[in-house]
């Protein structure tokens, strides 16, 4: 599988870039040797595409398609999928049911394209019966998903891919790396100059202004650890003058009220950072309180 990527020298580091999971991805390698940078980028690109192909809900040749079209019949899943299902179950418990990988089905009625297509209460009510992690039966390796329900790993996939890629690349190099998949990123350690990677936490409110250039609201020196961001101002619905965010509460099917426009969290792994950011969004007004309790560095934009 030939992956399309570019490689560019930035003086004291190399940047490999490619597209995966519908996002621009990059791998910054703190080394001088072009061949090593090329190899690392190839590995990263391959891993990102592997995870995308395996868990994308836009394909009909993967495990997710099998599960979502099992019509209530048990499906035997592989170890990696099983680990993700275990993890999703934990997140469901930790979030008191607010993080639910069966809630993606709500997208059928909620279209967050900035337009004003607003669903009726009846439409939402009809879908609620098809949502709820406890409705499925999960006994490793057997998963039984009731007919018409759907699983979606979209809430974890990209962050998980960042972590997995980092683990793989670390087996091939001791150099400091920055892995950035569409703004969810991870740094593996101090650079040769003793510093971290300088990363920008983007301010979504600036999107589309200043000639379409993205402006960076916060700069942060990331030595080791991960940053993930939840939230996107491009995805919302205006209805009767009220702005509804794309963060949906799976328990009532409605957008969470009072949620920040975006939340960025720093944690030891990108998966942790991503879950904490998403859970913070689901807390609505209490996002900051929730994050303060977690003793992590974070930014909330309102």
């Amino acid at each position: 599988m030939a992956a399309a990527f570019t490689l560019e020298s930035h003086g004291d580091y190399w940047a490999g870039r490619f597209t995966a999971m519908a996002s621009p991805c990059e791998v910054l390698c703190d080394l001088d040797d072009e061949a090593s940078a090329r190899q690392l980028t190839e590995l990263a690109c391959a891993e990102a595409q592997r995870i995308e192909q395996k868990f994308s809900r836009y394909r009909d040749d993967n495990i997710l398609y099998q599960i979502n079209h099992s019509a209530g019949e048990p499906v035997a899943v592989d170890d990696e999928t099983a680990a993700l299902l275990d993890f999703a179950a934990q997140c469901y418990l930790l979030s008191d049911g607010k993080f639910d990988i069966t809630s993606g089905i709500l997208r059928r009625v909620w279209r967050f394209d900035g337009k004003n297509s607003f669903p009726t209460k009846e439409q939402i009510q009809a879908l609620l019966g098809l949502i709820g992690w406890p409705k499925l039966t999960w006994q490793r390796p057997w998963l039984t998903l009731p007919a018409d329900m759907e699983l979606d790993f979209g809430g974890i996939g990209k962050e998980y891919a960042v972590d997995k890629t980092a683990l793989i690349l670390q087996r091939h190099t001791a150099a400091s790396l920055l892995i950035n998949f569409g703004g969810d990123l991870l740094a593996t350690g101090p650079r040769r100059n003793g510093q971290g990677w300088l990363v920008g936490v983007e301010d979504p409110r600036r999107l589309g202004t200043q000639g379409g250039k993205r402006n960076t609201a916060k700069e942060f020196e990331l030595v080791q650890g991960a940053i993930a961001t939840s939230g996107d101002t491009q995805r919302y619905i205006m209805h009767k003058g009220v702005r509804y965010s794309h963060i949906l509460n799976p328990r009532n099917g409605w957008p969470v009220r009072g949620a920040p426009r975006s939340v960025s969290v720093v944690a030891g792994t990108c998966t942790d950072a991503g879950i904490l950011a998403t859970l913070a969004m689901l807390q609505g007004k209490k996002a900051e309180t929730f994050l303060a309790k977690q003793s992590v560095k974070f930014w909330c934009l309102r």
Partner: peptide, 30 residues
């Protein structure tokens, strides 16, 4: 009330990623 879940979450992630809580060469304790 929002509650601290970070440690439990880190354990769940560690299981998912093969017993890794921090990726990298140093500790990311804030």
């Amino acid at each position: 009330k929002p509650k601290p879940i970070r440690k439990t979450l880190a354990m769940a992630t560690a299981t998912l990623l093969g017993h890794v809580t921090h990726i990298g060469t140093a500790n990311a304790e804030s």
